[in-house]
Design a binder for these strands. Structure first.
Lengths: 186, 186
DNA sequence: CACTAGAAAGACCGATCGTTCTCCCTAGTG
DNA sequence: CACTAGGGAGAACGATCGGTCTTTCTAGTG
């Protein structure tokens, strides 16, 4: 029986891809490197994924699911105001993580300029979902214009995730926190 | 004599590189493609640039200079408040351009994960300059915390440039405009 | 005029890209 | 036991990667 630590080849591929794509970029990581670090053969790779782009899409879908869970947990047992601050704090905290390298979706979009590409669809899904979360929270806490508030929060989110990589993450987190508190009614 | 329209090979290379790198991504455009579209030979390429990365750096420096000029013009003959709104409008308007494909520097950073890379230095320079512009304007306009205000404006800038590519540019421009007006004292 | 710098044209380099292939072996199922 | 699905190992595909080379030609300078 296969031990729990060394997962199935498909899982190892996905984990390795997530790590390498995020840390080094997508085009910069070749299939050779992927199969080598995942300890999987090329044949096995193409048995599970039709092509590299499908692995990229799977990587982003996995990232999206993880974020949805984290955001979901942050909302639990909180008033709308607390929940919104907690949700945006998830963003700010993420920028301060050791292995933070920007937003997976923004980084991926930079490497997939064609907006009709399947990878871009995964990105759009994630962004649409997050905007919806923010709009709902803004509405629940009685913001006079929840749609606008949500869109401003998305601007702050994108900016924070970018600034977390290119500027000082701790300063970015603090800036984001203050901006969020100023945005929502007291 | 060389006509004015067909510029020197170095200029043609830089123009072609700017167009292709921005539209399609940096790693996605090879040297073959560059010299072919610039109507320049490989030998000429390497006579003017030590390597592809140097052309990338030149591309970003050129973009930075163009932006500095545009921002400089937007500030002319205006009160601090008008100037700051005009500067941020340059950002919002850019997202609505036909060939808009996000922020050159953010996109490039996604493809250069190593923060010690020379290309990242060009990016850092540009960001530091823009933060300074915003800080100065916020101070001139009497904002109680110009440094914080400038950092929030940078978040909004980064978010707008990203949203302009991934979301609806017209909505992003409007959202940015309202957010800026709400941020600065009336 | 002779000289030279720079560009054109294109062959060439080893390495790597994403992808497909064959062959063999082993673990799980009936 | 026999059978099979799936993984390991690795060769091979054409294409492209960034970069170097030689050769020829032309425009500008003295």
């Amino acid at each position: 029986m296969r031990s729990a630590r060394e997962a199935h080849p498909k899982d190892r591929l996905l984990r390795t891809a997530s790590r390498l794509f995020y840390a080094e970029g997508i085009h910069a990581v070749g299939v050779d490197r992927l199969v080598s670090e995942a300890a999987v053969t090329r044949a096995t790779f193409y048995r599970h994924f039709p092509g590299k782009d499908d692995l990229v899409a799977a990587y982003l879908k996995t990232a999206s699911e993880a974020i949805r869970e984290a955001i979901g947990r942050a909302r639990e047992d909180k008033t709308p105001r607390e929940a919104l601050i907690a949700v945006m704090s998830v963003i700010g905290d993420a920028t301060c993580a050791d292995d933070f390298r920007g937003c997976q979706f923004i980084n991926a979009a930079a490497e997939y300029p064609d907006s009709d590409h399947p990878v871009r669809a995964v990105i759009d899904d994630h962004r649409t979902w997050f905007l919806g979360v923010l709009r709902d929270l803004a509405a629940e806490l009685g913001h006079p214009d929840p749609d606008h508030a949500a869109r401003v929060l998305v601007l702050l989110r994108d900016g924070a995730l970018q600034g977390g990589e290119l500027d000082d993450p701790a300063v970015v987190r603090e800036t984001l926190h203050r901006a969020v508190e100023d945005l929502i009614p007291h």
